[in-house]
Computed example of a mutant assay.
Amino acid sequence: MSGSTLKTAAVVTAVLAGLLASAYALGRSLVPEQHPSTAGATTSAHGPRYADQPPSDDPGTPSPDATPDTADGTGPYGAHVSTGSSRVALTFDDGPDPRWTPQVLALLSQYGVKATFCVVGENAESYPDLVRSIAAEGHTLCNHSWKHDVNLGKRSPETIRADLRRTNDAILAAVPNAHVAYYRQPGGVWTPQVMSTCANLGLTPLHWSVDPSDWKAPGATAIERTVRSQTEPGSIVLMHDAGGDRSGTVTALQRLLPELLGRFELEPLPTGAA
């Protein structure tokens, strides 16, 4: 083979390699990143369960406005990210859980703090005694969908409505006089359909402004650091009392409560009940 032929072959090879690399890069850019609320999910007979990821039956898409706009107290699609006052609200998602919820309740009771629990319908049905304990201790109950389906917002209005009503019914079966005033969308994946259903059912869409990502089980120190540094007057703090090993959350909460009480007034979100 002549020298010119070899040079030509080398040029062609280089061009083809460049084209293949460009095609690969383009393909990667067209694949959306997976929302953290949709990874590694499993379910059990007693509702959503996950090792270090939030529960989900199938992948979801994050809200287009995932970063809360706290200037007016609203975030994605107008969901609340502020208490509307100088007070701070602690919220706990995905329970109740027979191991972790009692530990969270005990700490809150120890420091005289009331919080808001966003419960999953399947878990509320499985552990009604825990729902009763939450209510009896003066905490606010919030609807967090029937089985933590992050794709719920993509479903038909009838399906969304049935899901939220079924969850409300499970809460009311445990606490007949409960006033469920709030709904928190799994993964924060708000859609116009969910917002419209909330309006029809008289539920206030509840988002958050402080997220220590405790569902990733990053350890108590990391959870504590985020909550301490990001919490300010009016913050709604997101944590979890179910869905996996929540020892880090419990330990962080034990350290945080006395400090937060020294800086803020902690309140349960008001239900508006008479």
Rank of each mutant, 00 (worst) to 15 (best):
L260C: 03
T8E: 08
K154M: 09
S4L: 14
L26I: 12
S2I: 10
T91I: 00
L20N: 02
S56L: 09
N168H: 07
T116W: 05
T5R: 13
W208A: 10
G40A: 09
G73T: 00
D52N: 14
N200A: 14
E267I: 15
P258K: 08
P218N: 05
R87Q: 13
R49T: 14
D163Y: 03
L19N: 05
T67Q: 13
T251G: 03
P186Q: 07
V15I: 15
N177K: 09
G18N: 02
I236V: 15
A162I: 07
E122H: 03
G188H: 10
P270L: 09
G40W: 00
Q34L: 10
H35W: 13
S56I: 10
G84P: 06
G187W: 05
A10K: 07
A252W: 07
E122W: 02
T249G: 06
S22V: 12
R99Y: 12
T13Y: 09
P176R: 00
T191K: 02
Y50C: 01
C118Q: 07
L108G: 02
Y77Q: 04
L141Y: 15
T140A: 11
D69A: 15
G202V: 08
G112Q: 14
N143V: 02
I171L: 11
V31D: 09
S56G: 12
T13W: 13
W100T: 13
E267F: 11
A274R: 11
P205T: 04
P268V: 06
T13C: 02
A39T: 11
M195Q: 06
R263A: 12
P157W: 07
L90M: 13
D94F: 02
G153M: 01
P258Q: 06
H144S: 02
A115E: 14
V237L: 01
T70W: 13
A106S: 10
R255N: 14
A242S: 12
P59R: 14
K216V: 08
S56K: 07
T5H: 12
A242K: 05
A39N: 06
A51M: 12
D149P: 02
V194C: 00
D149E: 04
P218E: 06
Y182M: 08
A170T: 10
D57L: 13
T197F: 01
D149M: 01
D169I: 04
G243E: 04
D129M: 02
Y50W: 08
P270G: 10
C118A: 09
F117T: 12
N123C: 02
D52T: 12
R28D: 06
T70Y: 10
A115D: 14
T226V: 14
E122T: 02
L164T: 03
A39Y: 09
V113Q: 12
E137M: 14
D214K: 04
T43D: 15
G187R: 09
I134A: 09
R246T: 07
V227Q: 15
G121I: 01
P205Q: 01
L203W: 07
R99K: 10
A106H: 08
P62Q: 02
P186V: 15
R255M: 11
H35F: 06
H207M: 09
D52C: 14
G262N: 05
D94S: 07
A199T: 11
P205V: 03
G187P: 08
G18L: 08
L107H: 03
H240N: 11
R165S: 05
S4P: 14
E259Y: 13
P36L: 03
S63D: 08
T74Y: 05
T42K: 09
G188W: 10
Q185G: 04
V120D: 00
T38R: 06
